[in-house]
């Protein structure tokens, strides 16, 4: 067994049969590992169970078989050790931006004074460029800003691992670009371990050290794990000049278009 920070072993998920015929598992035989400080993206078509895998890592869903081990301990149920950024931002609309992040911070450090909590939240909201919108309600923010609050909330509890469920899926290309840059900056500054679902090949190449490719569901499996060999200092604006970029990109796109079916 390899000594990964997080290892996923033989994961399988099947839902109870709806009719007479038993449902085939959504995915099975999923094995992979994530090293400390690694950024791993998972790509696959809809229905391959990416979100389910992420929910299992988060402890929100139980697998039908297999196990997830993080930092030497089996993942059983949700934990403050793993921060989650949800697909639909999942901010509480009755709390202010600051209140949403403070809710998380108070959960992690219940004994902190109000001032300490506020300072901590302000710092993380500042990191995502929302220092000016602390007291706004989520409904007053744009989609991109809401997702930023979600990211700040997940980072603010300083989890051992960050799980992102297609966080930029609903954003326009321009906004997505800026938030990707911000995410990259924060991840590099904090050395955060990240597992992220995405549909966007360029996003995966920009952010990830490793890309997991899933075949189509049901009975989805990990088809390949692609190492992104480009230097870590790559940026959105110049990575397409890297000689490796198109080789990797073509490989990923070819997979999604042609080879994901079997």
């Amino acid at each position: 067994m390899s000594m990964h920070f997080l290892s996923v072993e033989g994961l399988r998920k099947a839902y109870p049969a709806s009719g007479a015929a038993a449902n085939p598992p959504v995915f099975e035989d999923i094995h992979f590992g994530i090293g400390k400080g690694e950024f791993v993206c998972i790509i696959g078509h809809s229905g391959c169970g990416k979100t389910t895998i992420l929910n299992v890592l988060a402890g929100l869903e139980e697998p039908s078989g297999g196990a997830v081990i993080m930092d030497g301990r089996e993942v059983k149920g949700p934990s403050l050790d793993r921060g989650v950024v949800f697909q639909g931002h999942a901010l509480m609309p009755w709390m202010s931006v600051l209140g949403n992040v403070a809710f998380a911070v108070k959960s992690k450090w219940p004994d902190w004074s109000r001032a300490a909590v506020e300072a901590h939240c302000t710092k993380y909201l500042g990191m995502v460029g929302l220092g000016h919108a602390l007291h706004k309600k989520p409904a007053e923010l744009s989609g991109g800003m809401k997702q930023r609050v979600g990211i700040a909330r997940a980072f603010a509890i300083q989890p051992k691992m960050l799980l992102l469920d297609e966080p930029f899926g609903a954003l326009d290309a321009l906004t997505r670009g800026t938030i990707q840059d911000e995410l990259l900056k924060i991840v590099q500054a904090t050395g955060q371990t990240v597992f992220m679902i995405t549909h966007d090949v360029d996003e995966a190449i920009l952010l990830a050290d490793k890309v997991i490719l899933m075949s189509n569901g049901p009975l989805a499996k990990i088809a390949e794990i692609v190492d992104i060999t480009m230097p870590r200092s790559r940026t959105r604006t110049d990575m397409h000049h890297d000689p490796q970029f198109y080789r990797i990109r073509n490989h990923l796109v070819d997979f999604l278009v042609h080879r994901s079916k079997n």
Partner: peptide, 12 residues
């Protein structure tokens, strides 16, 4: 909303 419950769950 399920999402809000899940947020609370992940925050223990």
């Amino acid at each position: 909303r399920r999402d809000w419950i899940n947020v609370a769950r992940t925050l223990e």
